[in-house]
Amino acid sequence: MRYVLRKLGFYAVAAWMAVTVNFFLPRLIPGDPVQLMMARMSQSGPVEPGQEEALAAMLGLSHGNLLTQYGDYLSSVVHLDFGLSVTYFPSPVTDVLHDALPWTLVLVGAATLISFVLGLTLGTLAGWRRGSWLDSLVPSTTFLAAVPYFWLALLLLYLFGQVWGVLPLGGGYDETLDIGLNGDFLSSALEHAVLPAATIVLSSVGGWMLGMRNMMVSTLAEDYVTAAEAKGLRPRTVMVGYAARNAVLPSVAGFAISLGFIVSGSLVMEIVFSYPGMGFTLLQAVENTDYPLMQAVFLVITFAVLAANFLVDLVYGFVDPRTRQAR
């Protein structure tokens, strides 16, 4: 329980720091972003009264001193009041996010899980059979890990979409269909998700595999593995129950670093596929200098990553009892 509370405290601090960084960022913008946004919005249509104050509060640029600005900003973040999007005027930013978030969440979540499980399995086997053909594949994963996500996406898109024409060229689903829980929509969404998911898995599986392989090699030298072998246990039991179980810990502990990296890569990748998720929304915001949307996208992505890491830390505490006892 103390472990959970300590972790919760850490992620609360991390979230607070992210929110605060986000508060100071708009000050980097040259000129008056509030006036700029208001002018752009009034070009697109009538702006309701009160929008200017809401926008200023959201960007941390309301009237008053720094402290009241910070207070106004925090209150609008807590109330999820991100104002109106300039790009998708007059939709509120929250609606835009509400449409985009599930796409990224499902795609990146599922692909990361596949890649994690696949990488750990391959890494276990490669470490167990050192010098086998699987092990000799390990150096080539360094090449895959160094491939930019978006370039791999371009390549896959070119081959499967353009040259062979077996998979769709972009988007998240066939736009003639209605979004809903029906077979047509789901199969179309799945078809559109194959290449983006393959991009994530191909780029990230090598890292998991390599880390697991090296930890397996270290773990196999431990006395308890030798003891288990001497007892005459089945090799499978030794590999999975004794070696892999202990070797997997650093991979779980290091999940935070990898997840941030995968999410970052996926954001740019989404743009290549015009996948209607957070990355694509972020690019739209950047291209249209849509400050409210940019701020909100950054916060939502950060919070999602923090939440995922918190979950993994909980799992880690469960898998490795030592972390629960420590201090």
Partner: peptide
């Protein structure tokens, strides 16, 4: 470490 780098870099 836990705050994803690229979104921050993009916004900045």
């Amino acid at each position: 470490l836990v705050i994803p780098g690229l979104p921050l870099v993009i916004v900045v």
